[in-house]
Write a protein that binds this DNA or RNA. Structure first.
Length: 407
DNA sequence: TCTGGGGTCCTAGGACCC
DNA sequence: TCTGGGGTCCTAGGACCC
């Protein structure tokens, strides 16, 4: 089999790099995107200057503040990051149609099919890197290898801002001394187990038989066995229907008021339906998630015979699921969330329900109004709920982080 | 150091059917 | 009547990634 040409590209410290671009006075300073220091939450990105103080993504903001009190903390603007991301993917798609969107700032390119088009493969890769950096104003790290895992690990070696290629027959040498934590799929739990077996490096994994990894980690163990040897036949996952769409909020303070929680649930359902309408997606499963003050997390889901898209229906189901949590107790919540999954594109025909375009058209009309005027709603009852949220907040003197529909 | 938000995938256990 | 085992569907939870 021919050696594949997989390129992995990762934008360095994406969110904070965009913030620096928008506000050049931040250049060279420790920028931490994710929230303000006193807020509940974690850093989603830290600039390399902030990383010098030990701040990294996923770290609680309060801790980041302790380590780096003079850091510049920014809540962040997802719409702007998404716009940069779109530009990034448009640009790299010029070089091949075989592109996998691993996240907003991370892509795999399969240049195997297109290789005959490019006389010099390595100069094409350099050109892609330079064009992204010039046209976006963002630095990227690039890894090249015969499959996804090796290309991604090469990118890690190249960070920040470099380019690394894993050459044929050098795979084992490259992998041997990397820490096990660098292998995607080995998270905190698996690391604990492996370290107990005195396995610290990827090379140490080679001594474990496949059946042992399999019995320890299930199918994930099989992946570990193969990937630790640089074997990875996974194809790129090019554009397809998303598996799920979800929206959730962690409150600045725990909330016990059930009416307020339901109002917020309605708000989340409303936000959830926007990507469903845009993608013409209908969901067979609706799930509601809650997290209690003690961080215990529970979820309830419902499988539907005919899939839903419309805000009113989704909210009705979500409300019923939500109330199941409160049948006996009256608890304070730090998080509520709603998720739509088992998605299909296009409204499926139903033998049992009369077909009506009305809810869909209403939804689209509301989207248009919102785009024009920045505000609008599907349900008037929901508007009343939102008003309640805001008056409640004013009384309590705090603001919900994501509830920013009003202008 | 009290722990985000948006995803993917896997697993265990119970219900149900044959 | 106590008791099978396999297959499938569904629910809940958890590990992991960026």
């Amino acid at each position: 089999m021919n050696r594949r040409c997989i390129v992995h590209i990762d934008i360095d410290a994406f969110f904070s790099a965009v913030e620096v671009l928008l506000n050049p006075s931040l250049k060279g300073k420790p920028v931490i995107v994710g929230g303000l220091p006193h807020e509940r939450g974690v850093a989603s990105t830290a600039s390399y200057e902030a990383r010098k103080y030990g701040v990294h993504s996923g770290m609680p903001l309060r801790k980041a503040y302790q380590l780096c009190p003079h850091g510049i903390f920014i809540r962040g603007n997802f719409q702007i990051y998404s716009a940069f991301s779109d530009k990034f993917f448009r640009l790299i798609s010029h070089y091949t149609p075989d592109v996998e969107k691993a996240s907003l700032d991370e892509a795999y390119l399969d240049l195997t099919r297109c290789r005959p088009l490019y006389p010099s493969f390595s100069s094409t890769v350099r050109e892609i890197k330079q064009r992204v950096e010039k046209e976006l104003g963002l630095t990227v790290s690039v890894g090249v290898g015969p499959n996804k895992i090796l290309a991604k690990l090469a990118t890690n070696r190249a960070k920040p801002g470099g380019l690394a290629e894993i050459e044929p027959n050098r795979e084992e040498e490259f992998l041997k001394d990397l820490g096990i934590e660098s292998l995607p799929g080995i998270g905190p739990k698996a690391q604990v187990i492996l370290r107990m077996l005195n396995i610290q490096k990827i090379g140490d994994l080679w001594g474990l038989p496949r059946v042992s990894l399999r019995s320890l980690f299930g199918l994930n163990g099989d992946e570990m066995y193969l990937q630790s040897r640089g074997i990875d036949t996974r194809p790129l996952m090019t554009a397809s229907i998303p598996k799920s769409v979800s929206r959730e909020t962690t409150f600045l303070e725990d909330i016990w008021d059930r009416r307020l929680l339901l109002a917020h649930l309605a708000y989340l359902c409303d936000r959830l339906t926007l990507p469903l309408r845009r993608g013409r997606l209908f969901a067979h499963i609706i799930e509601v998630k809650v997290r209690y003050s003690d961080f215990k997390t529970e979820a309830r889901r419902r499988l539907l015979i005919s899939p839903v898209q419309e805000m009113g229906r989704i909210y009705k189901i979500a409300q019923e699921l939500f109330l199941q949590f409160f049948s006996s107790s009256r608890l304070s919540l730090r998080l509520v969330g709603v998720k739509a999954s088992d998605l299909v594109r296009g409204r499926p025909l139903s033998l049992f329900e009369p077909y009506s375009e009305r809810p869909e058209r209403l939804g689209h009309a509301v989207d248009e109004v919102r785009e024009k005027y920045g505000f609008g709603s599907v349900l008037t009852v929901r508007e009343k709920m939102l008003e309640e949220i805001y008056s409640f907040e004013r009384k309590r003197g705090f603001v919900l982080k994501t509830a920013s529909l009003t202008k």
